[in-house]
């Protein structure tokens, strides 16, 4: 270990240790202590807590749906953008990225207008004769799914464009010349060769939804609680601080496990070459 390396890495290592590792350890310690002694009581209470169970279920089902929806919408869109050339491509990229540059409140409030009582969607549905009374979709699971899909779609699209840009037109032409339709080519050639980007996108969107706070807070409120909003509600609103630490540790562990699992299973399937 020479002096240059020390000068380069030591300050940042200290920064991470002091501001990340030590606070996390304090958090873990707090989650494991009851009245000064080590105990799993907090976790036991947590796993028996019905609100927590509901939040956990919500978090997972919302994350799955959002990943599914962003993939479903993102794959054709990313393909379209990657096969566009020149100025139009830049414009489309810009329009995709633009919502990412504003905060989640800005992006969520319009959904209150769309999904709220007698909102745009409600009126559209009654125009179509689907409902008789004005309804509100706010604070439902569906609202959180729609809003989160909206917010995380650009992440998915950008991850996918990255790999799709590298699939040459000739490969597509080859598939078509061998007798495949465009749709067959999309499924047989484009998607299998986009696996690396799909995995990156899935990891990004899944963990983002798993840990998202703002959108579920605005569109789900207290009716559709997820883990991240539960941390805040048990803390600042309900004062059940003893549970906050254990939920936090749980959420953190969950994130790590999910990322590891997706990456592991991806490398098992063989979709991703070791590149990092």
């Amino acid at each position: 270990m020479n002096k240059e390396k020390l000068v380069i890495f030591l300050p940042s290592l200290c920064l991470i240790v002091v501001l990340v590792f030590i606070p996390l350890l304090m958090l873990a310690q707090k989650s494991l202590s009851v009245d000064g002694t080590i105990s799993f009581a907090n976790y036991l209470e947590l796993f028996g807590d019905s609100t927590f169970k509901k939040a956990l279920k919500n978090t997972f089902s919302i994350s799955f749906f959002v990943v599914f929806a962003t993939l479903l919408i993102g794959l054709p869109t990313a393909y379209f953008i990657s096969r566009t050339q020149g100025r139009l491509k830049n414009v489309l990229l810009l329009l995709t990225l633009f919502p990412l540059l504003t905060n989640a409140v800005v992006r969520s409030i319009s959904w209150m207008i769309i999904l709220g009582y007698d909102g745009i969607l409600s009126r559209l549905m009654s125009d179509l004769g689907l409902i008789d009374e004005p309804i509100s979709l706010m604070y439902s699971k569906l609202a959180v799914i729609i809003g989160s899909t909206y917010i995380f779609l650009p992440l998915m699209i950008v991850s996918l464009i990255g790999v799709m840009d590298n699939i040459s037109q000739e490969i597509e032409d080859a598939s078509i010349s061998l007798g495949a339709s465009r749709l067959q080519t999309f499924f047989n050639v484009i998607i299998p060769n986009s696996m690396a980007g799909i995995i990156v996108g899935v990891v990004l969107v899944f963990t983002a939804t798993l840990t998202a706070y703002t959108t579920p807070n605005i569109l789900g409120g207290t009716r559709t609680v997820v883990l991240a909003t539960l941390v805040q509600q048990y803390g600042t609103t309900l004062g059940r601080w003893e549970l906050v630490s254990s939920i936090s540790i749980f959420l953190f562990a969950l994130t790590v496990v999910v990322i590891t699992l997706i990456n592991k299973s991806a490398s098992l399937v063989g979709g991703r070459n070791e590149e990092k």
């Binding site: 890495f9 940042s12 290592l13 991470i16 501001l19 990340v20 030590i22 606070p23 996390l24 304090m26 958090l27 707090k30 798993l210 840990t211 706070y213 991240a228 941390v231 805040q232 803390g235 906050v244 630490s245 936090s248 540790i249 959420l251 953190f252 994130t255 790590v256 990322i259």
Partner: peptide
């Protein structure tokens, strides 16, 4: 190895990091 250390904040949900720093502040 230390690269993983430096990228570790990415793995921590924002609200969890926020709460752990709050504990540090209280401490």
């Amino acid at each position: 190895a230390i690269k993983n250390v430096f990228f570790s904040p990415v793995l921590i949900p924002g609200i969890v990091l926020s709460y752990s720093l709050f504990l540090g502040w209280v401490f």
